[in-house]
Design a protein around this nucleic acid. Structure first.
Lengths: 334, 334
DNA sequence: AACATAAATCGTAGCGCTATGATAGCGCCA
DNA sequence: TGGCGCTATCATAGCGCTACGATTTATGTT
């Protein structure tokens, strides 16, 4: 499979394999003359370093393992995509796994991830099984937990408080004069972050003395269809509903469609707020008020932390927490 | 980083490392008694095999490298997600890279991918640089090209003909009595598959003697906003437009929104057909007629081919081509 | 009981690279 | 001119595992 080895390059360049290895890792440590020779030989032979061998020898590979609940989810797709680009620029490969919102599944993924001796491990959220924590602690690899802030991270964390997103959403609806509120979400048992947004929302309602507020869950994944179903359910339970927060812009879009179908005025009769600021959110009818989570910023910050930790001075060896915040994007639906 | 080695397990189980290795790979080749001992030792020590070392020794790692244009694209997210799940079930890790629709970028990704001695390489589409082809040929790793059929694949291919999608779309609009047609797309220079759909569409118009047909391109990525912009552009150039094909359901959704905003009846005045059958396509207003590409089926078939090739008999060593086809989903927008 | 055969286990030799000292070559000052 | 410190280069010893052939043990046959 791998024909040309470092030895071949060394022979052609008339230096020892050590020098080739050294040049490839730290070009400045080798004389210009030798460097040029090596460069030429590499090109002539079409040499591609065997990273597996390198990883074994160096006891740490240039692999970063990312575990997200689902890459189908546009939020995570954005972050993963950004991470990939940023890390690739520094020569890191990305191994990716989907936990499907299952802590045990995540544990299995971490186990295999660890067997690659990765340069870093990126997890989604702050809740993991005890075994996962134990393995991670034993591994000494940098760990970044992303997309959630609140509890104590294992090592580093980049994200924002979902409870605060819930509060922002509730506050906005109340500010708009809405008093019969509902939070609708999908997969609220599995998706702890959505659940935290719901909790923050409900808590703020309670704190500010809103008289009527409810929460409704759709068991399947967040989708436009879930939104249409949820709107009908909540309207049955709360016919005078006037403010609706959705755990996801997809759900909100379904709500908007269903309102249009039934002739419910938005925001006239019901104000709708989403979460995610997805592709369509600015263009739909009415354009959707939503909370933007800065998924690409999360990706960039995670990449920065990892690269700093690996290449940088050990002063950074302590944990880091970066709050990327959130922003309410006020549009026409509220 | 990796404390417990196979040697430790062997010592505890009172067998040789070879037997442990053998048991881990082929449990049936070891006596039940020894197997139980090893199992117990593995658990007691919390042994996690070092796949880097294994990959080096076996000269091929259980890594599958997937290169797609962009994981942000819902089509590819679906396929990659399915692939990940299917391959993980057989103990394969997935390394993923985004080519951003650039052949040179793809070449660089293939180069690094190859340096992991992957068990297989999965590429998107059939067009690659000569250097990419050369590296792939030299590597002897199984190669699957997906999401496109037509030209001769490097090794195996799973996908469908985009030209035929274009024909299906055109035929449908013509069948609906539409005669002033347009194909609108995004990134038609970079996205060769979208370009093929456009070509098929135009060709069918020509072949069937449609009197008026045009094609319009939006330079940015496919998005809802692109749809709103494109609709206005084409209406200026072709005020009597009555049938519109979009390269992507996101673009189609933007078109639908803009039609609604301007009071253009769909399908009364203009029929709209999309591509992708995304999450919202069945729920939007009007529900969107579109072509479904079976992205998850592609993922499953690719995984099957790879696993068959690697674990299976060598009778499969020749290339394979699987046509996953496409389906017109007729809804209310046409 | 002696032998052939099969099954289970083992020892060894790397896989291709990096990290770690050790060595060689050089200019400079006393 | 000898010795010092510096830089550039090198030889060597693994990293942890798998593949392979060799060896041991169990099973069956006459």
């Amino acid at each position: 499979m791998q024909r040309v080895t470092m030895m071949d390059v060394a022979k052609l360049a008339r230096v020892s394999p050590s020098t080739v290895s050294l040049y490839l890792r730290k070009p400045d440590a080798v004389s210009q003359e030798a460097g040029k020779q090596i460069e030429r030989s590499v090109r002539e032979l079409g040499y591609v370093p065997n990273l597996v061998a390198g990883g074994l020898a160096a006891a740490s590979s240039r692999v970063v393992s990312i575990i997200v609940p689902s890459i189908r989810n546009a939020f995570f797709a954005e972050t993963v995509s950004t991470l990939q680009t940023e890390l690739a620029a520094d020569g890191f490969q990305v191994i990716q796994g989907n936990s499907e919102y299952g802590p045990d599944h995540e544990e299995a993924l971490v186990r295999t991830a660890l067997s690659w001796a990765p340069a870093a491990i990126i997890l989604t959220g702050l809740s993991h099984t005890g075994q996962t924590r134990r393995m991670l602690a034993a591994s000494s690899a940098p760990v970044v937990e992303m997309w959630e802030l609140g509890a104590e991270p294992i090592d580093m964390a980049v994200g924002f408080s979902h409870a605060e997103v819930g509060i922002t959403t509730a506050r906005h609806l109340i500010l708009k004069g809405r008093r019969k509120l509902c939070f609708v979400g999908a997969r609220l048992q599995e998706d702890r972050r959505a659940a935290q947004r719901a909790d923050g929302f409900m808590q703020h309602c309670r704190d500010t003395g809103v008289n009527k507020f409810e929460m409704l869950n759709y068991p399947g994944p967040a989708s436009v269809e879930a939104g249409t179903i949820l709107l009908n359910q909540i309207r049955q339970r709360m016919p005078d509903l006037d403010g609706l927060a959705c755990s996801n812009d997809l759900v909100a879009l379904g709500v908007l469609f269903e309102c249009q179908r039934q002739g419910i005025a938005v925001p006239g009769q019901i104000s709708v707020v989403g979460f995610g600021d997805l592709d369509f959110s600015g263009s739909c009818i009415p354009s959707l008020t939503t909370v933007r989570p800065f998924g690409d910023l999360i990706g960039r910050e995670v990449a920065r932390l990892i690269i700093d930790r690996i290449t940088g001075d050990m002063s950074d060896a302590l944990g880091h927490v970066v709050d990327t915040g959130h922003a309410l994007i006020e549009r026409s639906s509220s």
